[in-house]
Computed example of a mutant assay.
Amino acid sequence: MNSSSTIHQLRETLIEWGRDNLRVYPWRETREPYHILLAEVLLHRTRADQVVPIYHRVLERYPTVHALAAAQLEDLADLLRSLGLHWRVPLLLEMAREVVSRFGGDIPASVEMLRTLPGIGLYIAAATSCFAFDRPEPILDTNTVRVLGRLFRLDVQESSRKSRKFRTIMAELLDRDRPRLFNLALLDLAALICTPAMPACHRCPLQSICLYGSQYATAK
């Protein structure tokens, strides 16, 4: 792994970039755990711009997890129909009912307890724990492991987002004092600059410490 000074530089540079460049979504404007968990479930395999109007409609109809737990399956399915992935509708309803029955309506803060809820995998649990409770949880998906792979010239496979090696690296890089901002900045760097095809290395704040970016600069 890189030196502590390089890790410090990466954290500070990424967070500074994030302060001015984070994308704006309604679930990022709140720390309400129910809203954030709902958003993360809706975002699964779905583009954020598709989720925004549905997120608002669901919260308007079911403003609390208690209200969602009391929903009729058919009504919830109608609200979510445009997103596809119909299998998530009963899981969302079952999840809300378990939050009410097991936790009194309080969304659990820990990844371990979140993962005991129906339909909640490691990514959704880590994202909810970090973004709602500011817990220092590494967030790995196809996009963030792509950034790691380029930064440190690592071989990235489809399975890398579930790899212990990548999780260990991400945990070491994570700014434990500002995990929410760090993770949001990393996600948005992947979406806006370190894209799958034709990454904008010339605009990347991490180019000077990125092995892939340094190669790009040398080639120019």
Rank of each mutant, 00 (worst) to 15 (best):
85 L>C: 02
128 T>D: 08
214 S>E: 15
204 C>W: 03
43 L>V: 02
31 R>I: 07
120 I>L: 02
79 L>E: 13
149 G>R: 02
113 M>I: 02
62 Y>G: 10
210 C>F: 13
190 A>C: 02
41 V>S: 03
171 A>F: 04
179 P>K: 08
105 G>A: 05
193 I>D: 04
84 G>H: 09
109 A>C: 08
1 M>G: 12
115 R>F: 02
156 V>Q: 04
166 F>R: 03
113 M>F: 06
211 L>C: 08
151 L>W: 10
186 L>K: 14
69 A>E: 01
17 W>K: 11
210 C>L: 14
31 R>S: 12
11 R>V: 12
80 L>M: 10
104 G>P: 08
191 A>T: 05
10 L>M: 15
16 E>M: 05
77 A>D: 04
111 V>D: 06
118 P>K: 00
60 E>I: 00
27 W>V: 10
213 G>E: 01
185 A>V: 06
61 R>H: 10
35 H>T: 00
189 L>D: 11
174 L>D: 13
215 Q>V: 13
176 R>H: 14
89 V>Y: 00
146 R>C: 01
114 L>P: 05
142 T>S: 14
53 P>Q: 08
212 Y>Q: 11
69 A>D: 01
165 K>S: 09
8 H>N: 15
11 R>L: 04
142 T>K: 01
179 P>T: 06
30 T>G: 02
149 G>L: 05
157 Q>I: 05
131 F>K: 01
142 T>F: 04
100 V>E: 07
178 R>K: 15
186 L>V: 04
190 A>W: 01
205 P>E: 11
4 S>F: 14
156 V>T: 13
47 R>S: 09
31 R>D: 15
213 G>Y: 01
9 Q>E: 09
187 L>C: 12
73 L>H: 05
148 L>A: 02
127 A>G: 07
173 L>E: 06
72 Q>F: 02
114 L>T: 09
13 T>N: 02
209 I>N: 01
77 A>E: 05
165 K>R: 12
49 D>T: 11
166 F>L: 07
177 D>L: 10
139 I>H: 00
38 L>C: 08
33 P>S: 03
194 C>A: 10
79 L>N: 00
171 A>G: 14
165 K>C: 03
42 L>T: 00
140 L>T: 14
